[in-house]
């Protein structure tokens, strides 16, 4: 069965590009527009990996991370932060919130797939 990835980004272009790239590589993709949306969708579906933006309206990626990690079935699901913020500060915060790793935007689709393959194979 294809692995399912939850892609969270408030920017439709980025989100759809991510989804397109991932689908092309044979993953199932669920899209969410912000943290709240993602949390809801994470509850409804079984997800093998979460790819989330940090800076989003309503609920940001850090809060999402924190809340996801509180869910019993998301304790060990890999969560990657997809962010333009490359400072150590944000990474430290992401790490504290339970992120598995990070990936800076802008990224190229090849690298995205590479990183994801490393995490969920």
């Amino acid at each position: 069965m294809a692995k399912t990835i939850l892609a969270v980004d408030d920017s439709a272009s980025i989100r759809q590009m991510v989804a397109f790239t991932l689908k092309g590589a044979g993953y199932e993709v669920i899209q969410a527009v912000d943290g709240e949306d993602a949390l809801e969708k994470a509850n409804k579906h079984t997800v093998n990996l979460v790819l989330t933006d940090i800076n989003m309206p309503r609920m940001d990626g850090l809060k999402l991370l924190e809340l996801l990690r509180k869910l019993s079935n998301y304790k060990t699901v890999p969560i990657l932060m997809l962010t333009t913020e490359s400072g150590d500060d944000i990474k430290a915060k992401g790490r504290a919130a339970g992120a598995t790793g990070w990936l800076v935007k802008p990224f190229d689709p090849k690298r995205l797939l590479e990183v994801i393959a490393k995490v969920i194979g």
Binding site: T76, T100, G101, W102
Partner: peptide
């Protein structure tokens, strides 16, 4: 280039020759 993983984070990827601990955590996973 452009990405990284937190070593002790949940579900961080394994490298070759991964340790027992990682294997364990991935089982858990």
């Amino acid at each position: 280039p452009g990405y990284g993983f937190f070593p002790d984070a949940p579900a961080a990827p394994r490298e070759d020759g991964s340790s027992d601990l990682v294997a364990k955590s991935s089982n858990q996973n």
